[in-house]
Design a protein around this nucleic acid. Structure first.
Lengths: 196, 196
DNA sequence: TGTTTATTGTACTAATCGGTATAGTATGCA
DNA sequence: TGCATACTATACCGATTAGTACAATAAACA
């Protein structure tokens, strides 16, 4: 009963994701959002709560729709391949021509005033989940004999994620997909086991 | 003639640098600045023009006072040593215990609304200057026989800077100096020439 | 000592921020 | 055909944004 909603919340969420991805959390105003989504302020608040809740839902959508490659990448037969797929998949997300360049998680976290400290912590926590997944994959590889026993999976996961973060910053500054794939090539030369 | 200024502009600029470094450009308000600097708004505008001009002057100060190590690092005898000094010096700046963690150039550039596009471009341009300096150092190394002739200095400079940017993001999220030095250790293993 | 000049503090501007009260409108159910 | 209900539109809230007008103040020069 009652009047029907005149917009598709899922479609609106996709638009919000695009806006947040381009402008970051603080850089995006409610007016930016409502204008892009084609809805009014009360509609936005009725459907999504408030700005912070909306951002968390865009984060969920982002991970589900754009970062989903990571889970598959980690299942590659060798650790080396898993890491390379991870980095190359990330590059493709960062430079997806249908979305603003860069990473929602990185663009959103930087330059937060203290009023939005909670957002920053949320993003750091989500980032850490990914890094831990990678570390666990490397630990498995080590017990499989696929990764040297005297190498530290924690150090390696931290390094790989750092390269990814650096590429995210570059992407936001307009780096091309080719440029970033070249970064991956150089980065992968650290790998302690040669592909035979 | 006229009344004397009651604050030291140079000291005030150092404080502004600290505030901008912690909050980024957009995340910092004039009130944040005047409060930290201990001066009033008209004094700030009289001495520094406006927010954007003040930020540019803090950028100059930052490069002069905190990034000055880069110039010396590039003069190391070997290219490998130059790059390692560059990365390690940057880690120490990022985690300087007397300053907010992270890099003014990175924290300031992310999450800019379109009103401050000029700031973003300025920071990207300054970053490119550093990357070009590194590339030129690698080109010199190549003609010195200190760097393989079949390696591309542009690719390497881009990779090294990317690692630095990634560490800057991590530092802003609270990474420790030790953590980041470990990233450098792994990153340096890409190096195409072994230290004999 | 009086005048000029630059800095100071107070108080303000228009615009924008995130968020909402309220009234109007469209729908499903009885 | 009412009536209850959920959404929409307008217009607003107090707080904060970057930036400034203006008058009081303090120093240098005549």
């Amino acid at each position: 009963m009652g009047r029907h909603r005149e917009f598709d919340p899922d479609e609106a969420l996709h638009i919000a994701l695009q806006v947040f991805r381009r402008r970051g959390y603080e850089g995006t105003s409610i007016s930016d959002l409502t204008e892009a989504m084609g809805i009014t302020r009360p509609s936005l608040y009725a459907a999504f709560g408030n700005k912070e809740e909306l951002f968390r839902r865009t984060l969920d959508l982002y991970e589900r729709r754009h970062l989903c490659f990571a889970h598959e990448a980690l299942q590659a037969p060798t650790a080396r391949e898993a890491v390379e797929r991870l980095l190359r998949g990330y590059v493709d997300v960062l430079t997806d021509p249908t979305s603003p360049p860069g990473c929602l998680g990185v663009n959103g976290a930087m330059a937060c005033s203290e009023a939005n400290e909670a957002i920053r912590e949320e993003l750091v926590a989500r980032r850490m989940v990914n890094e831990n997944n990678l570390r666990e994959r490397l630990e498995k590889a080590r017990s499989d004999g696929d990764f040297p026993g005297d190498e530290d999976p924690t150090d390696w996961a931290r390094y790989i994620v750092s390269v990814g973060l650096g590429m995210a910053v570059r992407a936001a500054s307009g780096a091309s997909r080719e440029e970033l794939h070249r970064v991956v090539v150089v980065a992968m030369r650290t790998w302690p086991i040669r592909t035979s």
